[in-house]
Structure formats: C-alpha cells, structure tokens
C-alpha cells in the first residue's frame, strides 16, 4: 500500500505531510480555528461532538486539494481506530439522565454516543458510499491498525482508505493521526508500512 498524505492533530499542534501549520489556539479552540481558517462552509460542524469535529477537520485538511474532491465514489473506505470510543460524548449524555429531577435525554446528544458517527459525517460531506468502519483497541497498536487497514482492500471495490487513529478523551485531550492510503503498485508515493506510520505518529518536528 502507498501513502498519499498524512495529518497529525493534537491539542497544540497541526502537522500536515510533515509540515506544521501554526495556530495560537489550543484544545477545542484549535479545532474551531482550523475550521474557520481552512473550511468555513459547513455550519453542521458546530452541531458535531468533539470526536466528529476532530475527524472532520483532520479529513478536510487531508483531502483538501484532491482532484474531483466531491465527486460521489464507492471506492474509498473510511476506517478509524481509537481507545476511547465515544466516551467523551457518552459522559455528556450521562449528565442529561444522571439526576432524576433534571432528566432531559436529548436525541441531538445521544446520536453522538457511537464512535462510528464520525465516519458517517465524513462520508456525507464527501459523498463516499464505500465501507465505513470503526475499531476500538485498548491502546494505539500500530500493527493491528496496519493489518486491519490492509485487510480492508480485500473488498475489491476499495481502492483507497482514509484511515488511522482518531481518539478524543475529552474536548481538550485528543489525537488524530490519519492517512490517505492507496492501493497502487507503481506510483511514486512512499510505502505505507509500520516504519512510516511510526515515524509520522511519533516524530517530534
């Protein structure tokens, strides 16, 4: 498999294809700042929970500039991993039912109590009809992630995967390491393997 591009977002840093984008905002405000400076045409962003906001801005930066960006397609899968599942928003929802004197379960919050909603948000934005999957591991295990993403190409419709690690512990503690991975034998792109994944996730530039 080949790597077309990569992005890292943490609460205080944004790195796209190895190059840092400079922002003064941190945490939750960083995601809003990225949205306002780079995207700004998708107000649904403000309805999303933190995990979806993180996945949305990361995917936007990664896909920005791709030819035929919004052309409907079935040949691209979205395959994400994390260890917190949707816990960040689960705790928000729990607050709405915790106290029986202040019991107001909200469908707008409940819908985000599933980790795979972010894959749906990105599929809707980009008109991706392909596979969408969300896996939960007890830690960032690069080997499992690499194997499962490689296996996704066993579905012969799938020619590229928007995939990687997307974890949000709470609105100010999050981590996105996403890749656009292509099933191309001959291209000049670098190989997508454990070495390059490690380098991108743990590099200290």
């Amino acid at each position: 498999m080949k790597m077309a591009c990569s992005i890292n977002i943490t609460p205080n840093k944004v790195v796209i294809n190895g190059k840092e984008l400079h922002y003064t905002e941190r945490g939750e405000e960083l995601l809003t700042a990225i949205y306002r400076s780079q995207i700004n045409d998708y107000p649904k962003f403000f309805k999303m929970d933190s995990l979806c906001r993180l996945g949305f801005v990361a995917s936007e930066l990664l896909l920005n500039g791709e030819l035929d960006r919004f052309k409907p397609r079935e040949d691209r899968a979205i395959v994400f991993f994390n260890s917190s599942s949707s816990l960040c928003n689960d705790e928000n929802y729990q607050k709405t039912i915790q106290d029986k004197n202040n019991y107001f379960p909200s469908p707008a919050i409940f819908v985000y109590t599933l980790p795979n909603i972010v894959t749906g948000e990105i599929a809707i934005r980009n008109k991706y009809y392909g596979e969408t999957s969300f896996y939960v591991l007890d830690r960032l295990d690069i080997e499992s992630m690499e194997q499962i993403i490689n296996d996704t190409f066993q579905d012969l419709t799938t020619k590229s995967v928007l995939g990687g690690w997307l974890d949000c512990k709470d609105k100010d503690h999050f981590e996105a390491h996403l890749f656009l991975i292509k099933d191309e034998e001959t291209s000049n792109l670098p190989n997508w393997d454990k070495t390059i994944i490690n380098k991108i996730i743990y590099s200290k530039q």
Partner: peptide
C-alpha cells in the same frame, strides 16, 4: 472502555493476541 473490557475477556481465555473490538452501531 471497550478495549479494556475486551482485554479482560481475552485474558480469561489466556489468549495472547490484541483483541479487536468493532463498534459500528
């Protein structure tokens, strides 16, 4: 955490591999 719970289950059966959880609604 789903991954932590899955690890307890794999440990019960003494399985050495990282258990995989799929949470796709």
């Amino acid at each position: 955490l789903l991954g932590v719970s899955a690890q307890y289950i794999a440990d019960f059966f003494h399985n050495p591999n990282q258990p995989i959880v799929i949470s796709n609604a």
